[in-house]
Design a protein around this nucleic acid. Structure first.
Lengths: 210, 210
DNA sequence: TCGTTGTGTATACATGTGTATACCGCCAAT
DNA sequence: ATTGGCGGTATACACATGTATACACAACGA
């Protein structure tokens, strides 16, 4: 009956398929996986010790994809305003073409498994650091302290990740989500430029502007 | 064997207990619930048609709690700066004392059940609207357009909700999380005040500030 | 007083689950 | 040419799950 090989890959892809059809990684069953992959239940044990290990490997598989995406992303952005626009567009486009990976990331980031949560968090942390360093290196917002840039990067990464769920399954709102995201980022950085202003300073500033 | 009554409540509370011990609402089993509640599995059917209906009722139960919290919250805040500080402190404190409700909200907001997602989203939307109208009524940030205030409120509600998970189970970071949240809000609103400024305006503004 | 209704229980069944043991063919290295 | 491991399968077992049917008892209105 042996037709093709690569059972391990088949199982992982089966998981991604099931997850997009609204399931959660940690709730997948061994037999369910095998069924979806068209394999015998016990084949699972040839590749993974148990379901926890499987979850981690799926996460690893996804992390590879994401890292590739982030690396591509680094080859963009010129002016500050344009940078945020193009970057946001690119990121959402990426999420759109990797719905399974996106879904599992969002689900498990706050999911029941502490192991997966931790793994995902450090993955996000790494992405945020990369983003922040990129911004600093290119001096896109030189008026903001590096530590602050890191902080905002962390917030932004999370914000985009969550919004990407809506972006994926609400096609009618994609335009709006993208614009909101851009506003989010711009406000965050511009607000940060005024971090050490007092209330009164703000008031006088506003008066002078209008 | 009949000792006490209130089986329905017992089941719901059992669910909340299980969820805090790192499970997800949609992954709870009927027998598991009954076991935790100290009841016979079939008692479940006396109160709920199936697990989906159960999930919705749990959500309703939680929503009551949350609404009460929000209403209390409306009785606070004077000056803009103080308002954000006290409000943030209050909200996190609330989440801390209702960890089960918080956890289920975060988990299911991006969880596998479309039904629960929708229910939670409209719940959050309502809270965000309330927050925005409060800000507008009290003229806390009169320099920002109402529509923008609504937008920022939505973002903030979500931001706080997600951070509350870390707030709950990382006691050492509570101080930091609270401060970051305040910065988030302030930057968002202050950034919004500069929404219609061009890049060049920003540059000249910064020069005049320093 | 009887019947009804609401709440909880006991038993039972089909199905699904994780896992153990054993078997089989393929490929590569000795 | 034989051997051994690797990837895949088949069968089996103990247990958990959702659900159906039937029973028990208490409260209550007629």
């Amino acid at each position: 009956m042996t037709v093709l090989t690569g059972g391990k890959l088949k199982l992982i892809q089966a998981a991604l398929r099931l997850i997009t059809q609204s399931r959660s990684l940690s709730s997948l069953g061994l037999r369910e996986l095998a069924r979806e992959a068209g394999l015998n239940p016990n084949t699972f044990y040839r590749h993974f010790r148990n379901l926890d290990e499987f979850g981690l490997q799926v996460l690893g598989y996804i992390a590879e994809d994401m890292k590739a995406g982030v690396r591509e992303l680094r080859r963009m952005a010129e002016s500050s305003e344009q940078a945020s626009h193009d970057t946001v567009a690119f990121v959402y486009h990426y999420f759109l073409t990797n719905p399974a990976a996106t879904t599992v990331a969002v689900r498990e980031l706050h999911g029941p498994s502490a192991l997966l949560r931790k793994a995902l968090e450090s993955q996000l942390e790494a992405s945020a650091r990369e983003m922040a360093e990129d911004i600093i290196d290119r001096q896109l917002v030189s008026a903001v302290a590096p530590e602050t840039i890191h902080e905002i990067s962390r917030m932004t990464i999370r914000y985009i990740l969550f919004r990407s769920m809506d972006y994926i399954d609400k096609p009618g709102q994609r335009e709006v989500i993208q614009q909101e995201t851009e506003r989010f980022i711009n406000r965050q950085f511009r607000g940060a430029m005024l971090d050490d202003m007092s209330e009164e300073d703000m008031a006088t500033l506003l008066r002078s502007c209008s």
